[in-house]
Structures are given as C-alpha cells and as structure tokens.
Design a protein around this nucleic acid. Structure first.
Lengths: 200, 200
DNA sequence: TCCGTAACCAAACGATCGCTTGGAAACAAT
DNA sequence: ATTGTTTCCAAGCGATCGTTTGGTTACGGA
C-alpha cells in the first residue's frame, strides 16, 4: 500500500495553528510552516491542498482544542454564575500569562480575514454564536435557579460578554497596560452583579 | 527650483489610509497603492521612504481626521454624560452605516501589527490612552456636576468603554448580526446608568 | 523477490513582492 | 536660451511568494 507518512496530520495542524495565531495569515509563509514542522512542501500540499486549506485546519484545531480549555466550563451542563465570573476574571488578568500577546486566533481572523474571505467570516460568526450560546446557557441556568433578578436581560448579556472578550483579545496583542483589561473585566462583572439577586 | 509635484502628500496619505484600513498592511501591495493614487512608485518612495513609512503616515492621517469625527465631542471641553452615551449609541448601531465592515484602523493595527512592529504597538497604546482620557474627561465632568454617584469608578469606566469599542470594531469586520453590537452598547450603557445619579 | 503504490525530498516553477534606476520632462534662476 | 535642479515615468531589479514536479525511497501484497 505504499510508503508510510512520517508526520501526523493533527501535529501539523497544531504547528500551523500556533504560527498563524502568533503572526497572522499573510505574515506566515509556507516556508515558515514547513521549517517549523520539519515537513516538505509536498507533504503539506498533499495533506491540506493549499495554504488556505491549512489555515482552515488550524482554525478547526483551535476550536477543538483551545476554545474548550477556556469555555468548556461555561458550556458544561451545570454552568452558572460562577463559571461566567470565572471566565471574565480569567481574561481580566490574562496579561499576566505567558503568550497573552497572541490574543485569540478567531479574533485575529475576524480582523485580518473576515472582510475578504467568506470562510473566515463564517468561522468568526460561528465562534461568536458559540460564545453567546455558552454565556446564554450559563446565565439561563442562573436565572432558572432564581439567582438573577426577574427582568435580567439574559440574551443581551450573553451577547455583551463575547464582545467584551473580543476587545480584551484585540488589546492583548498590543500588550496594553494590564490595568485596562482588569478594569474592563471588573465593569463587565459589575454589570452582572447589578442583575444578580442578593443571596438570601 | 525644479519640476513641481503633480500630487499632494495629504491626498496620498488619505488613499493609503483607506486601502490599509480596508485590507490591512500585508494584503495591500504597493501596486494597489500606486494604482489607486495614480502615482508612480518613485513618487511614493520619494515622499514616504517605504511602505512602512506610508503606513505610519496613514495612521497619522487617521488620528488627525477620522478619530476626531467620532471622539471630538467626547474630547471637547464641556463633554459630559450625553457625549458618552452618544458615542456608545453610535457604535451600537454602526452596522447600519456604509463602511462599517472596515472597523477601526487602529484596532486592525493592534491585531495585525502590534505584536511584531514596535511602532504599531506604540500607536495602539497611544490610541487607547487617547480614548481613555476622552472618556475619563467626560465622566469626570459629569461627576463634578454631581451627575454620578459619589463612588462612581470613573477611571475604571474610562478604561472599560474603549475596550468595549475595540470588541465592536473587531466584530464589525465579520459583519456579525447587528443585534450583538446593539446589545453590547446597551449593556455598557446600563453599567453607566447604574452609576448615574437620578435626575432631581 | 519482485512489483505497484504512495510518500519523500531537492529543486525549481511562474508570479508577484517591495523597491530602484536611467533618461526624459518640467520648472526657476541666470 | 542656457543651466541646474527636481520630478516623472517605464522598465526592471533581486528576493521571495505559494505551489509543482521528477526522481528516489520505503512500504504491502503476490
């Protein structure tokens, strides 16, 4: 059945994800990619068809591996206020973590590619939908548990928080003063507190 | 004293600003630029030195022309709550305006270039500082006029709003559902209302 | 062991990138 | 009108882009 591959597709996608994440699509050359992966151009094109195809694979990998590490708790069945607060607090301090200057691959995609590449526009929308659903899910649980005031705007909050995170990710790339990100998270949390029912 | 120029520097910078704004730095070629401006490569390099130099000129032009149209009222001496609300409302509905998919050139710069280009990182920080000062100025006026509650976190709010706008700009590039942007602005405004003193 | 198949690798493809150049054209001063 | 200076313009520079190819190597099945 022929010679065996000396690489594995997921690992290549991982390398590509990291490079595209750090430098963006246009600033990452196929030579950067093949060098980093120790693979020949032939193998790359046999496996992914084009640089564009590799980018899509990188996005898929990001959605499958990175997004769940940050939003898995929010998407989990029993998620509630604690998970919402934890996510906002995490990204409010994200500047203290190594690699925070990478931001979010899908935020980067939205800015660099969404206006001109249909697939990237779709990826971005799917990502925003996913985050909105995750927040809506957790906030809905909180509301059902009587932890939010009756007229709490769950849907609006679920759309608000992802946009706030997008802002944090965009600014992370410029390594702005951490005080800005912290204050942003704090004010978003304050808005959440305003619709939270006081503990009995 | 020699032949006269057939172009004017500010107009070239304007063209460059528009192209870089729409497509980003790497996706805009020097041929795109010279074609759009009706100018030869020689003139471009004589005037700006390099593509990089032209980008910096485009950023300067953006700061001088575009930023004031959106934030001039906020920076004006008597700015107060009305101006803060107007800015947030404007960008909450920005998807209904032509060209909203461009987002903000400095948001794009933060994402595409700030991690790798020192000058762009500085431009981004300067922009965020400018917005923070503008919001802080208007909120400070409101506070001095007794229109905010005594413990209103003016500084934190002044850092919060620019980040929210960054999120809106990043998502504008993907043309996400306008409901998302509207809800984002509404929730930011709700946070502001929470620290606003009720009218007498 | 030989053969068909599939993957590897070095080399190089045409295209396009940012940028430069050499000579012609247009001005101001003499 | 001549000269010195500056800009214009077409052409093209070397480098690098994304991608392909031809010859070789490693495997499974007969």
């Amino acid at each position: 059945m022929g010679r065996r591959k000396t690489y594995e597709r997921p690992e290549i996608a991982d390398h590509a994800m990291r490079l595209f994440w750090a430098r963006g699509y246009h600033a990452t050359t196929t030579r950067d990619l093949t060098d980093a992966m120790g693979v020949n151009p032939y193998s790359l094109y046999a496996e992914f068809g084009s640089k564009e195809g590799l980018y899509q694979a990188a996005i898929a990998r990001y959605e499958a591996l990175v997004v769940p590490t940050h939003f898995g708790a929010l998407e989990a069945q029993g998620a509630s206020l604690e998970e919402v607060r934890a996510v906002l607090n995490f990204f409010g301090d994200v500047d203290r973590l190594e690699g925070s200057e990478l931001g979010c691959l899908l935020c980067n995609t939205s800015v660099e590619r969404a206006p001109t590449v249909e697939l990237s526009r779709a990826s971005t929308k799917r990502f925003v939908d996913r985050l909105t659903c995750a927040f809506g899910h957790a906030l809905g649980n909180a509301r059902a548990a009587g932890r939010l005031v009756d007229d709490a705007p769950v849907d609006a909050l679920a759309r608000f928080f992802p946009t706030v995170l997008m802002g944090i990710w965009a600014l992370s790339r410029a390594q702005v003063d951490g005080v800005v990100l912290r204050a942003t998270a704090d004010q978003a949390l304050a808005r959440l507190d305003a619709v939270t029912r006081a503990a009995p």
